[in-house]
Design a protein around this nucleic acid. Structure first.
Lengths: 206, 206
DNA sequence: CTGTGTGAAGGCTTTCACAGCC
DNA sequence: GGCTGTGAAAGCCTTCACACAG
């Protein structure tokens, strides 16, 4: 299990495979071929096989993969990746939607705290949790040892908030703001820019 | 302007550059070096220069790029990409948040219609537009010649809805559902899987 | 004969190194 | 001197071809 050399893109696809495998497992399907799995994941069979061999070999030649053991193996690779507590900063439209989004809870991520410069404005949104003011941010993060943050503030505030997050000890940020964040090397950022996704798509329209 | 050979990733970054350039332009900044622009975009200077030369050369050696002409040039490359009417299918939590999301409107994308299997359930969300039932989908798309769709339905319905969209003539889909969509070659899909983004981030946490 | 595992080949991007122009 | 433009090199990832196991 040479975790240190797994390419970023492979790690990403492992999450994809894992979800498909979980479904197969729930449906009591016991074996699956790389061809079938690859089709479901939208990749080529060889790619899938190569991805899987990055952390061991557990297929049976002539037969395929045993779903049960694949679930276990993938879970152990992604283990650390799940059940992380998360905070969310910026309770606007997008922020409050994400707080309610079942997709996170379903996959084991719990948003344990939300922050906003104007904590009272989100009152109407009948959230399940209190919205805290920004000056409670640092304290909350270090006390609860939070490592993951979702950033849904306007672009103008994004860098300032990021600095505060990093200072408080956040190690990874899922950034929905339309800004590129400057962070130290030990902090990871994934950007989700919805407008760019749309723009990019429409570039390929005839 | 050899548009046909611009790599996918370059097109994506062009959108990024464009946003930064627009801001510089608003702030009356007239020239910018590849180093400065690259830093703001989070890429290496050489990468930026290479990206820009894919569709012409308009920097001045020893000086940098003229912001004004860069805005014009980039706008013309991305022109087709903007001001596309968009529909949204699946008015749950995420869907209704995206309908309200100012980020789209601000960048020139208008959601002109929304659809749901139970159009009445979104009543409370005080949306600016009517939510139409699914059986109006095909008609709406072809009448208005819509090419872009945002898909925010549960994974279980995603493929069925996709088939309907494709049949009606949709050419590009921004897919928020946790399923990989099977589509014909002439249809483009960009996937945004929020749970996987989080999982992926937390993989890199120490 | 079926389907995995994998070294080698191929393709796509990024980065380098430096020529060229202001 | 400063900064862009670009062929060549490097790096990374994907795909191929086929050996190998059940």
């Amino acid at each position: 299990m040479a975790k240190f050399v797994i390419p970023r893109k492979t790690v990403y696809r492992l999450s994809l495979y894992f979800r498909i495998i979980e479904r197969l497992h729930q449906n009591r399907i016991e074996t699956v071929s790389s061809a079938a799995l690859a089709k479901a994941a939208g990749v080529k069979p060889t790619q899938l096989r190569k991805d899987l061999t990055y952390f061991g070999q557990f297929g049976t030649r002539g037969l395929g993969y045993k779903v049960g053991s694949l679930v276990t193996q993938l879970a152990s690779v992604l283990r650390t990746a799940r059940f992380q507590p998360v905070i969310l900063v910026g309770v606007g439209n997008l922020g409050s939607a994400l707080i309610h989004y079942e997709g996170f809870a379903k996959e084991g991520f719990e948003i344990v705290g939300a922050f906003d410069i104007r904590p009272e404005r989100a009152k109407g949104a009948n959230l399940r949790m209190p919205i805290l003011p920004m000056d409670r941010l640092g304290e909350f993060i270090s006390e609860r040892n939070i490592k993951l943050a979702i950033l849904t503030v306007p672009g103008t505030n994004a860098q300032a908030v990021t600095n505060a997050l990093v200072d408080a000890g956040i190690q990874a940020i899922l950034n929905f703001s339309p800004s590129i964040l400057q962070v130290p090397n030990n902090v990871v950022v994934n950007n989700v820019n919805l407008a760019i996704e749309l723009e990019n798509l429409s570039y390929f329209i005839t």
